[in-house]
Design a protein around this nucleic acid. Structure first.
Lengths: 342, 342
DNA sequence: TCTATAGATTTACACGCGTAAAAAAATTAT
DNA sequence: ATAATTTTTTTACGCGTGTAAATCTATAGA
């Protein structure tokens, strides 16, 4: 149809709709009468016009952008959650902006910084945890509506949604204790993730509740290369014959994947059947835990629920009368996934 | 200090630098004299000013944004490549915008569409391949400088950089044939990825070159859930006793991961030592291939090189006099990673 | 039919920065 | 020191849209 339309003015005269009405429409299609909405949509189709992104956002009170920051996209767990959240954001008529902190607190701050210049309507943040620069997170969340997910940081953001580690670890400990040797807890000595501390505490309390002696296998290791840590430390632990016949509950699946690899290498048989030398369980239902050898018994986090709740809370805050409601928190239950490793 | 600076005008009067000079600086810090650059940087530090992103990009000839589209962020291989590319883009003073197509051609087009409205200086695209809407890719690349990586689509983009499947598969076939039973090739019947076709052809030609009979194990399966496909099909294949003692080269590591899982389940011993029932090799050096049971012998793609070349070519095109140079292509050699599975 | 009202139009200005051109100042070369 | 060159300043306009206020128009309820 002739040449390309560049401005809304032009589009207005061609479509027979006034520019302010068009502006309203592009801001929120539902805010105009149905008949005009249809007329506009037809015209858009016909002339293939779309407003200039930059001019559009320059003077908007709130943009339609929502930031999405995860600690590490290389971790399939976060890649999965991010995908889910992106989908929900798009469905709500917003524009997701995905950023990964690559495991580093500087990158996390840099991400928030670059988001700030984009003036997002809100930000969904899964913080690094221990490594995070808490003060800067607070400063940020004071400026833009922020909802935390996966990992909590006290005093940051208007809401937090995550997994109920107490429930899920309790469930797993219970299952393991009922079906064989009670579990020892395999974890990093100084975890970066706040969930790890909760899981440790949950393990101890679950064991005590059952009248059993908790035993922590705390291994050294820095960074995000959990599989390697699980592998290297697991190798050492496994050599100790006192762990023959033991049950090992890992703080997360990635550690378990490393541990399973070490066990395989040592020729140990892992599984829940009688002739096995070891039982291993994990937590998170990592996409690959189905294909480990043997397949990994674990806890599936309900991240559909976490995602949906996070996004809906975000929208509520954005639309909201900015009534300084108190910080809301909700934890979702995990589900036991019984496979063959325990 | 005082209150927050909002406009460049204000920042100009406070810093004692004229606004056009500031504008130049923010566009390219190297374009102003060193002494003024330092003065500006100090003032930025002091007043914590940063230009309005939207106003800034509205009238710029070229923005500083570079789009980065990968087929599937859930695949750790692409997550890794994306991370590398992001890093290189930032280092070059540009702003990466990461989008995943989630395995779907509609999403791929939607991604390019939303990138178009951001008027990026260029786009680095790893296309879905067979599933891609080629015409729309062409239309897009006619409007925006586009560099393809990982997978090639003829006639799209100004350059392509990827792996030399011919070399890498040849290398692997050679290795496997020298060290035991020559390999059969395990792959999907109708792969989505163009590399898969090249690998198939490379396998056949490598076998023939050695005077050996190629044998293709083509299994059904759609989508991106390669592990599941490898697992389910692998299970069937393995039951057939004629594959006892065989060597199986998988078209990619994710298929191999599934196959290894199936082999484990069936009690088959996989590995290169004499007492094993099966040898399995992969391709890509997936982050987890180190922790499979047994660890996976595979080919490591040189994606540092692919990434660097892609970004540097992109920059050349962006800066370039737009001289309609011919489409450049370069393939990088893979490296044999010997582990225990073959 | 009249009126109340939601929705559309007209008019006009604002936003914050890019950029061009000419003049002035600072630096470098001769 | 002077001339040539580079860099900065001054001045001024444009970009495409948001938004406000007043006015007009369509729709619905009585």
């Amino acid at each position: 149809m002739g040449r390309k339309i560049k401005t809304m003015e032009e589009f207005a005269s061609l479509s027979g709709i006034s520019r302010p009405t068009l502006s309203k429409f592009f801001n929120d299609a539902q805010s105009v009468k149905k008949s005009t909405r249809l007329k506009i949509e037809q015209a858009i189709e016909k002339y293939d016009y779309r407003p200039n992104f930059y001019a559009m956002n320059q003077n908007r009170r709130k943009t339609k952008n929502i930031g999405l920051v995860v600690p590490n996209l290389t971790d399939p767990f976060f890649a999965g959650i991010a995908r889910k959240l992106e989908e929900l954001i798009v469905l709500s008529g917003y524009n997701p902006l995905l950023l990964s902190s690559h495991g580093g607190p500087e990158q996390e701050i840099a991400n928030l910084d670059s988001l700030r210049s984009i003036k997002p309507a809100g930000v969904l943040l899964a913080p690094l945890g221990r490594a995070s620069n808490v003060q800067k997170l607070k400063d940020f969340s004071a400026l833009v509506p922020t909802v935390l997910f996966d990992a909590n940081v006290e005093g940051v953001g208007e809401a937090f949604f995550g997994s109920d580690n107490h429930q899920s670890i309790g469930l797993m400990v219970d299952y393991l204790a009922r079906t064989g040797e009670p579990p020892k807890f395999f974890e990093m000595k100084d975890p970066i993730n706040p969930n790890a501390y909760k899981r440790r505490a949950a393990y101890v309390s679950a064991m005590e509740k059952l009248g059993l002696e908790p035993e922590l296998l705390q291994v050294k290791g820095d960074g995000w290369n959990f599989e390697e840590i699980g592998f290297a430390s697991g190798r050492q632990i496994i050599q100790d014959s006192k762990y023959r016949g033991a049950t090992i509950l890992c703080s997360n699946d990635r550690l378990a994947i490393g541990l399973l690899s070490a066990a395989y290498e040592s020729g140990l048989r892992v599984g829940h059947s009688a002739e096995c030398d070891l039982r291993v369980a994990g937590h998170d239902d990592h996409p690959f835990s189905r294909y480990t050898c043997p397949s990994l018994t674990t806890i599936a986090q309900d991240y559909d629920a976490i995602g949906e709740r996070s996004v809906s809370e975000m929208l509520k805050i954005i639309d909201g009368a900015n009534g300084i409601a108190e910080r809301s928190e909700e934890l979702f239950e995990g589900r036991l996934v019984m496979r063959t490793s325990a």
